[in-house]
Structure formats: C-alpha cells, structure tokens
Amino acid sequence: MTDFSEKLSAYLDGELDATEAAAVEARLESDPAAQAEFDALMEADALAQDVFEAQLDDPVPFALAQQIKAADLTVPANSAAAPTPRSGWGAIAASLVMLVLGGVGGYVVKGQTTPPVQTAGWLADIADYHAVYASQGRHLVEVAADESDHIEAWLGNTVGAEFSIPDLSEFGLTFEGGRLLVANAKPVAQLMYRLPDGTVVALCLQASSRETDGTLAFREQTINGFDFVSWTANGADYVVIGPQGQPDLNAIAADAALEI
C-alpha cells in the first residue's frame, strides 16, 4: 500500500483538507494509473454501499438492537494507542462497521449518528444529478433541443471542451436538450436523451488534462443504481449514464464517442 493509495482512501472518505484534496485531484487528472486505482476503489465503495442498503431492508433482531444500544464506543482519553494507516479496503470495511453501529434499523449509539458511506468523484455527482433530473418532465433540460447550436456553443465554452451533439436516434433515443451541472467543482455539460417509454439516458462531459494515446478505453461501472460507460478523449472526460441494466449502453457510448 503506497502513501498515495492511503490518500485516495482518505479522499474517498472526505478526510483530506482542501489543499490535500486539490493535490489528489491534480494527480488523478494527470496520471491514468492513479485514476484507474481510484475508479476501482470508488466502484468497490459503491458496491459495498449497495450491499449495505439492501441489508437495511431486513428486520433487525431485537437482541442485536439491544447490544447496539448498549455498546460502549468511548475511546479512553489517556489511551496511548495510535491509529494505524488504513488501506482503501480497510476504510470501506471500517465505514460499514460504523454504519451498522450508527444506523441499522434506525438505531443510534448513545445518541450519535454516523455519516453514510460516501462515493467521491465526478461520476458519483452525476449519479446524484441524474436521479433528480431524469424524473422531470417539462423541466428535464435548461435549453431545449431546438436550440442545439446554442447548446453546443454555450456548454462547450463553459466546460472548455468543444463538442457536437450526437444523433443517437438509431437506439430509439430522442435528443431533448441540455443543462449545465457542476461535479468535483468543475462545470459539466449534460445532454439529455429520452426513449419512447420515457427512460432518460444522458451524455455528460467535462474538460480533462489527462493525455491519451488516441485509443478509446471504455470503463463500465454501476453507482447508486445507475450504469456508467466512461472514456477520455480530445481533452475531455465523457460518460453515458442510464438506469441499471439499461440495454445497449455500451453501443450508445461507442457511437457517441465517434460523433461527439
């Protein structure tokens, strides 16, 4: 476990100050290997959260509830034991333990609640936005599809990455328009498409300083109930997002990557 791996774990847990977090983000933008490590850690974290949330639906045994309420988690003030560095996986495990003690079935320990497992990175932010906006009807977008030229100029200039709106009609997707988001403190362009059944699929992009060799490398992951296919090209990070299990998402991303 390297020092940077430990920092990635701390960044994922929101434990770094602003200066340290900025240093990690700069490293992620310039180092594909570091980004790949972070993506794997974030995916594992999201999977752990999904598993835990599924367990919340199970009834809590009364005996376990009594043990949780009676647990003494106080650390003696004169304790000489120093905390040991946690690996990325250890951080996730520790977060899950605290969640069990702090919130299973609505119980708390000595009146204290613990924060939920966090997923960092721009994809987690996109998942949060998509969960809200995909359910909108009239207000799905800020600027409608009939102003496509304006969308390309406005969002392209704002995010710092030129693009053309892909035609994804061969997948049954109708372009509805676009909106501006913010993820990891950077502007993001979100292009919204809708299937005949009302399902919303989005294509998002933000400027990136990562260099590529011209080969498209697609990464797949699931975060908070949404499937993602992401890639980096031409100075920008891209991602296609749809509901978990959405068919053809890989093909949609591949086609969008060629057209955008």
Rank of each mutant, 00 (worst) to 15 (best):
L181P: 03
L47F: 12
A80H: 13
P32K: 00
T232D: 06
P166A: 12
E43L: 15
L258I: 01
V132T: 11
H150S: 12
D57I: 14
G106Q: 09
V141P: 00
A54I: 09
G156I: 02
S79P: 09
V104E: 13
A48S: 14
D72R: 07
S209Y: 09
Q112T: 11
V108S: 11
P59W: 11
A145D: 01
G235F: 06
V75F: 00
F163T: 03
P83M: 09
E220M: 02
G172C: 03
A40R: 06
T232V: 08
F171L: 03
A18T: 05
L28E: 05
L16H: 14
S209P: 02
H130A: 10
T174E: 01
T212M: 05
V240T: 01
E220A: 00
R179M: 12
Y107K: 08
P166T: 04
L155K: 00
E29W: 05
P187W: 07
S230C: 12
A36T: 15
A251K: 15
A144T: 11
A21K: 10
A65T: 02
A70D: 15
A202F: 00
E211N: 15
G245S: 00
V229R: 00
V240E: 04
E142M: 13
N157F: 13
V240P: 02
A254I: 00
T174V: 07
D197T: 07
